[in-house]
Nucleic acid binder design. Sequence first.
DNA 1: GGTGGCTGCCC
DNA 2: ATTCTGC
DNA 3: GCAGAATGGGCAGCCACC
Length: 548
Amino acid sequence: MTRLIDLANASRALAATRSRAAKVDRLAALLRHCDRDAIAGSETGRNEVGGREIEQVARWLTGEIRPKTTPGSTPGRAGAARLHIGPAQMAATDAVEPAPQPRLTVTDLARRLDALADIRGSGSQTRRAAALAGLFAEATVDEQGFLRRLLLGELRQGALGAQMVEAIARAFDIPLGSVQRARMLRADIGEVARLAQSAGRAGLDALGLTLFQPIQPMLASAADDLADALAQLPEPLLEYKLDGARVQIHKSGRQVRVFSRQGNDVSAAVPELIDQVAALPASELVLDGETLALTQSGRPLPFQTTMRRFGRQQDDPALRQQLPLTVFCFDCLALDGETLIDAPLRTRRAALSETVPATMRTSFIEAANAARASDFLAQALAAGHEGLMAKDPGSTYAAGARGSHWLKLKQSHSLDLVVLAAEWGSGRRRGWLSNLHLGARDGAGGFIMLGKTFKGLTDQLLAWQTEQLLARAVARDDQIVHVRPELVVEIAFNELQQSRHYPGGLALRFARVKRYRPDKGPAEADDIHGVRALFERQVAYQPEPAHD
DNA sequence: GGTGGCTGCCC
DNA sequence: ATTCTGC
DNA sequence: GCAGAATGGGCAGCCACC
C-alpha cells in the first residue's frame, strides 16, 4: 500500500536532485511498490475512484490531479471532475494544524478528492473550504506541502510527464519506445501506467488509435522568420496558420465528438462542427484542425470573439446564429478503419483532400521556392490570419512532440514601453524582480498600463533589472515594487486585444522582453495614440459582423 | 438582478 | 501561449 | 534538442454578496 507520505518524500527528493537518471530511478521505485489490486469504489457510490493505486501515483507525480473525462460521460458529469481549488480556496488551509503522524494512503486521498469534486451548488465554497481544511488536518507538514503544490499545479520537482514515461519503462522493464507510443495514444498517464503494470509491453503495444479516445496533438516549434523556416525545411508544405482553437474530431457513422487540445470533450459547445462532420460520407474519421469564428465575408474574427463561442460549455442558439464557428482541417489521422499517423504528411493530406471538402480545409502549397513562400505568407496575412505553418511533407504524426517537423511562423510587433512596476518572482526566480508592468505614454506626462511580462529575461537580466528597479522604487507591498517610470524596454507581442481590465482598453497578447533601451528615456517611449493606431489597423482587417 | 472574485481552459 | 536553462 | 519552470490576457460558468 502506497502512502501519501511516500509521494511527498519522493516529490521532495525529486526536487532536491538535478540528475534526470536519479529522478527516473526514484519514480520507478514508487511505481514498482504500487499494489496491483483494484481500489474499491468510494462510499458515495457516485464518481467512483475505481482503477488502481498506480493510476493515481502516476497522475499525481506528473502534476495531473484528476483523470480526463472519459468519452461517453455526460456533460454534467464532466464538470464533476473539476476540483475548483485555486490559491484563494487554498487559503482555508493556512492555519490548519498538521497531523503528527502520516496516516493517509493514496486511496484515501483519491476518495477525498472525489468528494471535493462532488461539492457544488449554493454554499459550496464554504463546504469546499471545510472539506479541504479537514483533509489538511489529517496530513503531516510534509504531506500538507505536497498537497498544496499538487492542488495548485506547482509541483516544481523537475520531473513531469517525460520522466514518468521513462520511469514506467524502467519499473516494468518495457522498452521506452513502447511506453512513449502508448503515451501519445492515451491522454491519461494513469492508464498507461496501469496497463504497463498489469499487461506489460504486450498490453501497451496492443493499443492503437481508438475512435473517441483523443490522442495528443502534434505540436510545432517557432521559426524566427521565413528564411529560418526554409533553412530548416527546404521543401516544406506551407499552410495558413489560423488563430482559433485546436480541435480533434472523431467520427463513426453519424456519431461525432470534438476534443480540445488538452483532450477535453467540447462537443456540446460546437454543434455546427458536429453536424458538418456527421454529414461527410466517410464512415470513420479522425481529423485535426482549427476552429474559429468568421465575419460574413469570411475574414477571421479576433481570437477573443472565437472564444465567446468555443469557451462555453453549452451551445447558445442565439449566439451560434450570430457567431457561427467554422472548422479548417489540416490533417487526417484515421480514415475508414485505417490509422494514418505513421503515414507521411503528404499521404495524410491527400486522404484529407479526398474526404473533406475544400471549404473545410486549410489552404496550403507544396514545394514552394522562397519567392512563392513569401507571397503565400503575404497572402495569409492579408487575409487576416496569424501566419504560416511550415511542415516536413515526409514526416509522420508525432503526437505530443514539439519537434522541428512542424514550424510556426507568426507575425509580431514591438513597442518601446516604460516599466511602471515589477513583481517579485517565485520558484527559481525568488529574490528577483521578475514580472514587469508595462505602460505607454499617455501624452500628458503619465503612463497607461498595457499588460505585464516576465518572458525573454535571462538570469543576468533579472539580476540587472532587480538592482535598477529597486534603485527607482517609490512604493512597495508584499508582491509589487512600484518604480519611477524611467526604464524603457523593447517589448515584442503578437497582437493587441480589447481589455476590460486595463485602463486604455487594450492589452498586449504574448508580450515578451526583447531588450532594454538604455539609449532611450521615458519621453521617447511609444505613446498610447500609436498603440491605438496599431489596433485600428488590426481591426480594419477584422470588422465586426454586419448585424447584431 | 447586477457585480465582482475565483477557477478552468483556450491561446 | 513564449522564453530561458539544465541536462 | 528536450523537458520543465515561470507566468501572460481573456473567455464562460459558478458562486458570494449587495
